[in-house]
Design a protein around this nucleic acid. Structure first.
Length: 571
RNA sequence: CGGAGCGUAGCGCAGCCUGGUAGCGCGCUUGGUUUGGGACCAAGAUGUCGGAGGUUCGAAUCCUCUCGCUCCGACCA
């Protein structure tokens, strides 16, 4: 491709509305342009990166035995009503009516459609297993789209769905996808971790997320420093063991804590460490108030309480709901005398003479004790894992990192097949629900997370396998005949060798070309200038690391071919 | 959904407080010079000041409404 004929509008300055590096660089490098909040056009240079990732995903899905198809974006309401998600999915599901006033939605995921397809054709165990996938544009009407392609409303996703006749078969299908995902992210040149995850709104029995490690990630990944265990903080298991302190029980005492709303305030006024205070948090579980007790220095994990209660929606109570349930204002809730069910984190079990709220404005209680002063309905692991907590598998130490979720695999079980009556006849002629799994990869997010992970102050640094072009040839002064001829010849040779090459033949100053070269981050960059040409040499620069070498004109094409091949093989 | 902020030329911004008919840098066009790290000289073009309504002799500026966008929060009692 000739730069002068290409459409690659680069920007010198960061757009005002781009906050994170990947968004800024994708805008500056002419990869994307915003059309509306969370909705982007992919410009040619950006599309090339997207297509590279898609191709890797496609190859690995095919290798794992999945079969590509393409489902529609517009989904009729009936399918979603059948699975129950028409009501359950909430406002993220973009609904609309056609000209006949029939209800439709934009597909945010395709369990319904694919299950409908499969149930229409699969009748016998002989037709299974099967795994169908597509690479398609999804729409989720996010409350708050942000960070460019990182959290868009419209985005490209690869989604695969497996159908099996048995648990073992479903586990095998899951395993295959897990391996395919590892290969995909390795081939994309990304540093990632596979972590145990909460299965959330999609439902199902277990799941793993694939997290690209980057400081700007929206998710917190808990990893054991000693063994392979990694989990999303929503899921990371916390084991609180301990012993009851031997100190004698003290009397319950009312203390005035005027204006103390936070654990820090209360801790200071009661002269207790945060770990000797129990905070009482009221949540509404499917509109029923429930109290959750968490040690003052710990954080409530909403996903865990939600799973424990088997509730479909869990939210923190509003001040009005808190007043109704406790009789006191926000900040002064306590377990003593509460009429609602009380769940407590395991760590609370090992406390004696702790501080709690008084369910009354400006009142806390000191010297509170379990059983004597109040009863807990159930103890459970209800808090976020913290740095330094013990790993449940090996006793090692937990550490925190941030990650960007680029892939998520779920074992669904029969949630959708049961609701939508997708059954097969087994060898005995008996009808059974098909056992499903679903597997997603955010294509645009994968590209964005690669940029988050691979960039410097000057611009992007593409890993070879997903680079929009493999080699950039910079023709320094196109009016210099020798320079032009040498660059054109090299361009020709590289194209013949099957290398994806961008020839910067623009009539720009060298500085402008070098700045753009650094910005767009093509892995191998050759500079054709009069200076080197006099010595029969061209300068070859590696974008990553900036290493430069002078290579003889007659050897450069072969050298590039070798380097491209090596970089692709390594991935 | 709650809070904050922003909308002025393609991009980045100033002007608004204190009303007088729009400006800077980059980019763009033309001509010339220049060519190894975002060149220089000269001459140009480009705006329904997000939209609607109001106040006023006069509104980018003040008031009301509205649309869009961004950030923070929505999980710490």
């Amino acid at each position: 491709m000739r730069y002068s004929q290409y459409f690659l509008p680069t920007l010198k300055e960061n757009p005002a509305d781009a906050e994170v590096v990947s968004h800024q660089l994708m805008m500056r490098a002419g990869m994307i342009r915003k059309v509306a909040a969370g909705i982007y056009s992919y410009l040619p240079f950006g599309l090339r990166a997207i297509r590279k990732v898609e191709q890797i995903v496609r190859e690995e899905m095919n290798r794992a035995g999945a079969i590509e198809l393409l489902m529609p974006m517009a989904n009729p309401a009936e399918l979603w009503q059948e699975s129950g998600r028409w009501d359950y999915y909430g406002n993220e599901l973009l609904r609309f009516k056609d000209r006949h006033q029939r209800d439709f939605c934009m597909g945010p995921t395709h369990e319904e459609v694919v299950t409908d397809i499969v149930r229409g054709h699969v009748k016998s165990y002989r037709q299974l297993p099967v795994n169908l996938y597509q690479i398609q544009t999804k729409f989720r009407d996010e409350v708050r789209p942000r960070f460019g392609l990182m959290r868009g409303r419209e985005f490209i996703m690869k989604d695969a769905y497996s159908f099996d006749t048995s648990e073992e078969g479903a586990n095998r299908s899951y395993q295959k996808m897990r391996e395919a995902y590892c290969r995909i992210f390795e081939r994309c040149g990304l540093k990632y971790r596979m972590v145990e995850a909460d299965s959330g709104a999609i439902g199902g029995s277990f799941s793993h997320e694939f997290m690209v490690l980057a400081a700007t990630g929206e998710d917190v990944v808990i990893s054991c420093e000693s063994c392979a265990y990694s989990a999303n903080i929503e899921k990371a298991v916390v084991v609180d063991r301990g012993e009851m302190p031997q100190e004698p029980l003290s009397e319950l005492e009312r203390v005035v804590t005027r204006g103390a709303h936070t654990v820090a305030d209360v801790s200071q006024m009661l002269n207790l460490k945060p770990s000797q205070i129990v905070k009482t948090m009221l949540v509404m579980a499917d509109a029923e108030p429930v109290a959750v007790l968490i040690r003052g220095d710990h954080e409530l994990n909403v996903a865990k309480i939600k799973n424990l209660l088997g509730a479909s929606v869990v939210e923190l109570a509003t001040p009005e709901q808190i007043a109704a349930a406790t009789g006191g204002p926000v900040g002064f809730s306590g377990p003593i005398g509460l009429k609602v069910p009380i769940y407590a984190d395991n760590a609370v079990k090992y406390l004696r003479n702790f501080g709690v709220g008084g369910n009354e404005k400006d009142i806390h209680l000191e010297g509170a004790n379990l059983d004597r002063d109040f009863q807990v309905t159930q103890f459970a692991d209800l808090r976020d894992a913290a740095e330094g907590d013990a790993c449940p598998h090996c006793g090692g130490r937990y550490s925190h990192t941030r990650g960007i979720e680029v892939g998520h695999i779920f074992k669904l079980g029969t949630k959708y097949s049961e609701a939508m009556k997708a059954t097969f006849l087994d060898a005995d002629g008996k009808a059974n629900d098909i056992i499903m799994g679903c597997y997603g990869i955010g294509i645009g997010r994968t590209v964005a997370s690669s940029i988050e992970q691979n960039h410097d102050a000057d611009g992007m640094i593409w890993p070879m396998p997903i680079a929009p072009f493999q080699v950039l040839v910079t023709m320094l002064n196109p009016k210099d005949e020798a320079v032009r001829d040498a660059a054109e010849r090299l361009y020709q040779q590289l194209q013949e060798a099957g290398i994806e090459v961008l020839l910067d033949d623009r009539d720009e100053r060298p500085g402008a070309k070098f700045k753009d070269a650094d910005l767009i981050g093509i892995p191998l960059q050759v500079t054709v200038g009069a200076r080197g040409l006099k010595e029969g040499q061209l300068e070859l620069k590696q974008r990553a690391g900036g290493e430069k070498a002078l290579i003889a004109v007659e050897r450069i094409a072969e050298e590039l071919r070798k380097r491209v091949a090596a970089a692709l093989a390594a991935a």
